[in-house]
């Protein structure tokens, strides 16, 4: 299948992209690696009138060690995150999670910013960012702002980004704490039926987040609270699905998803040494 026709704008700077978005509003879509957007366009489930290609904004491709956090440019590819020593040393969970995204070809093109801005609850990467307590940086016509990952995912495929904003950077607090990631799927290349990220953070708190258990990527708040209250992994995992509103699909009923969330959370916590 072939996308419906559109106008193509190749942005040469973030400002240019923001200006193009400001001009075209809801008719426009940003194209980074394209691995979330293009499949939708090929089925004509998305048919933007204007595509703004930000794939060549090379100044948004970086991984920087900023001491207490790691800063990753939004256009950094999964492959670069997956193989980064800085990521491995300071936010190891993110590197591991990224290595499970799609397949190698997808990881050669897909970007961290694209994966996050798409707001897909079945995406693995948001779970790592929630568990690690990331901050997202967005640039718009009136300058830059920081958005806590907890405020970022607004609904199914919806984020806190306004139509004229561009996600520019992901900031992840550094930690040398242990972590665990569990992804349960049918085939290696598939989206997670359910997944769980868990990380011991620098403040000694434990971040836990779930994949595909809610219309948005979601923090396993009840589990985190239980851990903070001294519960062990098994006990804390029992409440993993609380507050989640999962859907039934081809691969799992609601009941089974809830069960998987509990099992995978326990395993992720155990892998994180809890």
């Amino acid at each position: 299948m072939i996308p419906a026709a559109f106008d193509y704008i190749r942005a040469t700077s973030a400002d240019e992209a923001i200006a193009a978005l400001a001009e075209h509003g809801d008719d426009a879509k940003l194209l980074a690696g394209g691995h979330s957007l293009l499949p939708l366009m090929r089925f004509r489930l998305a048919r933007p009138a204007v595509v703004v290609d930000i794939g060549r904004l090379n100044d948004l491709k970086y991984i920087r060690d900023e001491g207490d956090h790691v800063a990753i440019g939004a256009l950094t590819r999964h492959r670069d995150v997956e193989t980064s020593e800085v990521v491995a040393a300071k936010v190891g969970l993110l590197g591991e999670v990224t290595s499970h995204v799609g397949d190698p070809q997808v990881r050669h093109r897909g970007t961290i910013g694209g994966a996050v801005a798409h707001g897909d609850p079945a995406s693995d990467i948001p779970s790592a960012l929630i568990a690690l307590g990331a901050v997202l940086v967005a640039a718009g016509p009136s300058g830059s702002r920081e958005i806590s990952v907890d405020d970022f995912f607004a609904g199914f495929l919806e984020t806190a980004l306004s139509p004229e904003e561009v996600l520019t950077e992901v900031r992840i607090p550094a930690t040398d704490g242990a972590w665990g990631f569990e992804k349960f799927n049918r085939r290696a290349q598939d989206w997670a039926i359910v997944g769980c990220s868990a990380a011991v953070r620098a403040d000694a708190g434990v971040g836990v987040a779930l994949v595909n258990m809610h219309p948005t990527p979601i923090r396993a708040g009840a589990t985190e609270a239980a851990l903070a209250g001294g519960a062990g992994a098994a006990q804390a995992a029992e409440v993993a699905a609380e507050g989640c509103d999962p859907t039934e699909d081809l691969n799992a009923s609601v009941e089974y998803r809830q069960h998987l969330a509990r099992v995978l959370t326990r395993r992720a916590l155990e892998a994180a040494g809890l």
Partner: peptide
Amino acid sequence: SVKSCTLL
């Protein structure tokens, strides 16, 4: 390696 069906 890339999938040339998912690139413009």
